[in-house]
Design a protein around this nucleic acid. Sequence first.
RNA 1: GCCGGGGUGCCCGAGCCAGGUCAAAGGGGCGGGACUUAAGAUCCCGUGGCGUAGGCCUGCGUGGGUUCAAAUCCCACCCCCGGCACCA
Length: 987
Amino acid sequence: MLHDPRVRGFVEYLRKIESKWQRKWMEERVFEADPDPSKPKFFITVAFPYPNAPQHLGHVRTYSITDVHARYRRMKGYNVLFPMGFHYTGTPILAMARRIARGDSDLVWLLTEVYGVPKEKLPELTDPLKLARYFHQEIKEGMIRLGYSIDWRREFTTVDPEFNKFIEWQFLKLREKGFIVSGTYPIPYCPSCENPVGMHDTEDDVEPEVAEFTVIKFRLEDGTVLPVATLRPETIFGVTNLWINPDATYVVADVNQERWIISREAVEKLKHQNYSVEILSEVRGSDLIGKFVLNPVTNEKVPVLPATFVDPDFATGIVMSVPAHAPFDYAALKDLKQRSREVAEKYGLPEELIKSIEPKIIIKVDSTPKATAVEYVEKYGIKSQSEKLALESLTREVYSLELLRGVMHDNTPYAGTSVKDAREKVKEDLTSRGYATIVYEIVNRPVFCRCKTKVIVKILPDQWFIDYGNEKWKELARECLRKVNIIPPEIRKEFENTIEWLRRRPCARKRGLGTKLPWDRRWVIESLSDSTIYMAFYTIIHLIRKNRIPPEKLTPEFFDYILLGIGDVEELSKKLGIPTEVLEEIRREFTYWYPCDARHSGKDLVPNHLTFYLFNHAAIFPEDKWPRSIVVNGWVLLEKQKMSKSKGNIIPVRKALELLPADVIRLTILSAAELMQDADFSLEGVKTSIDILSKMYTLIRKVVEMGRPGPVKSTELTYCDKIFINKVKLLIKEIDESLSRLRIRDAVQKAYFSMYNFVMDYLSLVEDEMSDERRREVIKYVLWYVIDKWIRVIAPFTPHIAEELWSMIDGEGFVSIARWPEVRDEEIDYSYVLADEYIKRLVDDISAVVRATGKKPSRVFIYVAKREHLELLRKVLHYISTEKLSASEAVRKVLSEVKDRELKKWLGERMKKFIEYVVTIPELMRDLVIRGVPIDEYSVLKEGSKYLAKLLHCSEVIVYHYDDPERYDPAGRSKLALPLRPAIYIE
RNA sequence: GCCGGGGUGCCCGAGCCAGGUCAAAGGGGCGGGACUUAAGAUCCCGUGGCGUAGGCCUGCGUGGGUUCAAAUCCCACCCCCGGCACCA
């Protein structure tokens, strides 16, 4: 398609004009916005890019939608500020640079082959900051070349010293309010890399799942602790014995001043979880078999028995056995009983002891005490503890069954308590009394780090958290959410849920770029935490720079005054040595622009960034500075496929721009889907976009070449002209409505495709009138009227071609800042809209007849009903819509009201037909009729008979009143005429 | 598991929140026609079934229900996609 020379030519043409207009916008500072109290302001922002790699089409969507929104508002008369910054904060930039330094071949391939980074640039990109700057520039260039209407004077990065001071202020504020807390935090960790591991750092991208285990201290007679790890502490009441792997190696160790026996593998893990562990000696698992331990809760003495399913690499390597409620335990017990003699001999135990162990039921399910595990194991015919997979799945089933429907049995102190509650209570009770402690373990283990080391859990001490779990803060966030307009409304629920989910969240790390915690400089504020109120910074940074205010003067008092209006200007001025005018100017700029009227982002940021955005605004700013609206959009697919690095099906912005003009890229993405849906970027779509742009361009050019129209009197307009003009007006109004709700795809469809079709339809109807000189002038007038509006309407979507066309019609200034062609409802003459609907429907009907009969029409006769009949219809429709009557009730009611005998008879004869017909009138037509929009069927068709003939491909259309005595009506069809539905005869 | 979103004709995709020309917008593909030396582009017609007069029948994941009337409302079920955090 792109090889077609004509397409190629048009594409080249577009590219040429695009750089031209981009240059002009820049030169004339069209998008630089300063406070202007005479205009309503609109401050629009979008999640800033993270420059650890170039951008691809997925990013283009969010920014393009934002740009359309910005441009639309600008044309609607708002003073629009659309700024952009760059997010350097965090570790991915470091990781990227390190991987390049290591010569990671996958990454090198991705960068050079997919993203088109020149090979010779790579060495430079091993420096994180240079890497960020490099991609920053590339991304910025892409944005400029895509025609985004950004005020670049306000650009900043999150490592700028001025920004650091701003974030310091934010964190001091949060801390003042008690929203920053410190504590410990368990995290998946690679002991070899000495780093936390997330999904991206593991082999096969597995997300390591950390779970909290309760470790209950059973004790030998000498007080040595055998710690057993469990997810179900409430089952402590059903313990019959402990399990130890006889073949594993255990150690006796000093753990936090107690003597513990744990598996050798557990030693390192405990150390990473802040236990002090000192190994005293080693023992074999088998040496522990047969010993008795004391259950700290029930004070029962239970034996230690051997089980092969016990994994020494899991938690402490010791397990408590609850055969009634744990399938593994029951299976192991069964195994043991089967070879009780052998085992007894081997470990010197009384065989009776083994034989005497029976599952102890401690949980009721649906009010019946049940040995759930026993039931399941028997039901599924599990033969031995070595059937690991089956037992794991049974464990899950038992777990959820008992969690959901289980209640503690009468033989426990928690009788009647649900399993769910009992679990918490027992845990709480045991830990507070020192009978238990907490150990974390990776539950989906083994998970391996990319370096092949097994991932473990580490507890980070003294971690700093943002406490999104704080109930008071949550209430503020909920309030903030209630006040904000969410587009599209469907995702509001997700925000609501997120607010409820959120708990405290680590907000600082030891590595990465960013701002240091002001009260503890070892920590760097993490990226999702320094990006929550930065929109405010856009409003002031350019002034900080213009006035050459050094970062050290950007004290908390400075921001308190600028952003919150706290403090005395004179005093502050004296203290900082900044003139009061300057301080006041900056304060004014902030108060003019803030709050943010629209915040855009992809839907991935709803459960984190966007929700944090609400939280932080609610915490720091007064209500009048809270966000006004949030706009969320879906992904971009490539030929229906999800874009992914591994598939290599990523189209970087740079490459897209090499192939296609910006307007085409924009239009393709914008028209592919409505906001929340995934937009498929396909060759097909590209083709369609180029196609419609070129058709539109050719058409408008043709109109322009006809020359400017001279003066035309409104009386010279024909019925057809007026229909066309009013249809266009209505269309523009609809586009406006769609755009105001950001139904961009719908707006695009209408602005390009519907508009083009309207114009083409009109042209085909009037083309043969062009020979008449006067008529030609009028048509030109109509067309110029329409293209003037048309060009404005497409400007938000494809601004470059719009500017070019605008200059072709000698539009004033830039179309980018021209007025939107506002259409007030009063300006639309709906009688023409109704007439158009009427004609369309009639044509449809006639075509249906033609099709059904197979006749080729030469003459078409049309018989129209009378005005009084239309009035009857109007009444019926009115009753249906206002009094909620059924069609038949409404018709009957109207019939009863008719005084005129003729009319009554007319309706009476047609009752059944009329009722059936009423229901079938399309919505738009129905509304227009109810509103009393006038239409004279006879004159509409009379005036339009020539056009009708054209539309129907027949030689003549003859219109009669249905009761015209002179009418030609061989088939007697005229009596079938109903209001707005004339009778037809074809020959 | 928890929480969200969704299942529409050959395909993509509107419509469903405010039930009524909804056989279901708009594309795409396919078939036919016009134009052309031809192809492409463009335009017209058709695209569930039946029908020689604007009609009828079947239909919007499955099964029920409410209603004069349901793709649209209610209930149950099945299936698909996304998020679940310290990662930007």
